[in-house]
Amino acid sequence: MIRPFQPVSARARVALGLSFFALFVAVWSVATFGGFVSPTFLADPLTMLADGWFLLSRQDFLFDIGMTVWRVVGGFALAAVLAVPIGILMGAYKPVEALLEPFVSFSRYLPASAFVPLLILWAGIGETQKLLVIFIGSFFQIVLMVAGTVGATRQDLVEAAYTLGARDRGVVARVVIPSGAPDIAEILRLVLGWAWTYVIVAELIGASSGIGYMIINSQALMATGQIIFGIIVIGLIGLVTDVLFKAMNHRLFAWRFA
């Protein structure tokens, strides 16, 4: 019997999670091997694996994966290092918020992908341009969400800290930051996921390496197996970083999960 909020055992959790992947592959297999979908539009799972092996062994695809990962991590880390402190300042100090909030809210809606042509003009088609696309896509989102989290800091805890002798800086360092830290980590996990979308867009235009570059090349060759392999590789990398992020949060913020 399934009842609301009843936990499942660790083994059942893994089994259920894997079974849905199995179902996904099963449906895909039926659609392709069963001849319901033409191979021109959708490769079957075995072709996908063969194409993947070809990419890895002959086309140096590991190098492309490495390039893409480095771009995502580089652009995202740059954005996070600048955006988190600005978000904390905005959330805690109302004049800073009044100054920056309207502009950041406006910038957040500027689509990062629309900047690709401009950035190519400004920064060429090198790595700087790729990092900038991801930076623009991530920076404003992180600032706003961190500011929101910090702004919602429990005021009774802030007051308690003041009655215990804390000064303004102590309140920021010992109440605002630790109380917001788990949510800030969660925001970073979320935005890192979005950064993966931006990197592929950046690589579709004016790139000579990367997963997105491989995908656009494969389109010209009608190699749907390669495209799907590339997409699945991104998914797997996303899954692994997610698991790592969650494990790290559980370790760092044990008080939340106790």
């Binding site: 009774d156 805890l157 007051e159 308690a160 009655t163 002798g165 109380s179 913020f253 008080w255």
Partner: peptide, 17 residues
């Protein structure tokens, strides 16, 4: 506010972290 006046609040205000 200052440390010369200790306060225990009506609601629970321990630092959860």
């Amino acid at each position: 506010p200052g440390p010369d006046r200790g306060m225990v609040f009506q609601s629970y205000t321990l630092f959860p972290w």
